[in-house]
Design a protein around this nucleic acid. Sequence first.
DNA 1: AAAAGGGTAGACCGACGGGTCTACTCCACG
DNA 2: CGTGGAGTAGACCCGTCGGTCTACCCTTTT
Lengths: 198, 198
Amino acid sequence: MMAVASPPHEPTSRDRLIDAGRELFWRRGFHDVGLNQILKTAEVPKGSFYHHFDSKEAFGQRVVEDFADESLAVLDAALAGDGPPLEKLRGFFEGQREFYEANGCCNGCLVGNVGQELAETSDVLRRTVELHFARVRARLAGCLGEAARRGDLADGVDIELFADVLFSAWHGALLRMKVEKSLKPIDAFLDFHLPRPS
Amino acid sequence: MMAVASPPHEPTSRDRLIDAGRELFWRRGFHDVGLNQILKTAEVPKGSFYHHFDSKEAFGQRVVEDFADESLAVLDAALAGDGPPLEKLRGFFEGQREFYEANGCCNGCLVGNVGQELAETSDVLRRTVELHFARVRARLAGCLGEAARRGDLADGVDIELFADVLFSAWHGALLRMKVEKSLKPIDAFLDFHLPRPS
DNA sequence: AAAAGGGTAGACCGACGGGTCTACTCCACG
DNA sequence: CGTGGAGTAGACCCGTCGGTCTACCCTTTT
């Protein structure tokens, strides 16, 4: 039977598995977390896990997709409305900054982490991450294009190139944040690429 | 007895272990590679491994340090001499680009990978990576400062900030390279941050 | 009432994880 | 000569790994 929307129910075991996976994979990575750990966290027996997912890898894919969709929605929400696009963009990254600050500058982005850890060993995961990356990059380029059309960007700036670099720089800053346990790389990113109008 | 330099000898088992670790960790990450795999690759028995290293973690640290020292030497060599600093810098990154191109756009940088995978679970490894990052960043800033002194950089550019962003952007580009299996992010980095004089 | 099937429950599997331990070889030093 | 330490060799330990399998609800359908 289809699970029709009947909101205030306790989450299904499938949901609890995804949540546990998200949390654990985010904090410790894919290979460092065993099934039993996930099972224990979600309070779900192994039989249910393999009823809902074909393998740990397939499960990982679902976890990443789920997280990616959600964070894409956050980005879209930040870029919606008709404010100045560059300010909306900066607002989004500042929101991220705050999130990481509240979390002690650790862990970084689940999608990026999984991409880094599994790109060479799981083509399924690699493609999943690749797809999400492309979507985010497209949003960035769209926003930048909007800014260019309004004349908020210096003439001659290559939108696509800028979007590429912005996105790379962001992920690099996240890596350095977790290694250096500091917001400095994030702030440098913000100051350099999206300086406050001042 | 100290191993005095007597060059053309077959490598010691310790050396073979480090080499195997470097290769395997680079290709597949730390957690995805078991001791037995390393042992088999290096053709060294377990007893020797634990004679030379206290644990897999300590071994990982040595592997990273070894690799980090070597790549720092490559960077120093590229920045040595008295050519225009910005060109030397671009030359270095172009050299890296070529290396990755020859390797099929995969794996990325061992130090960055280990940093990402282990920063939250091993403080030893985290600090090792952090130290290397700081060293590279310092080289970058030094080179940029030289460029500024020569007037090769636009006035008002913050050297430290630029070095920060450059370094982050590079690691982000490496991540995207391996996920997207493409040199495009690397080229975007080069074009944006270190454009050819043209 | 019976059958069917989604989902729960967990015992069980062989393989492999990191790590320990003992035995042995080899060579420098006294 | 013989002893001690560096290094080699690999059997062995137990815990955990991802995954399978059977049994058993419980609800829906007929």
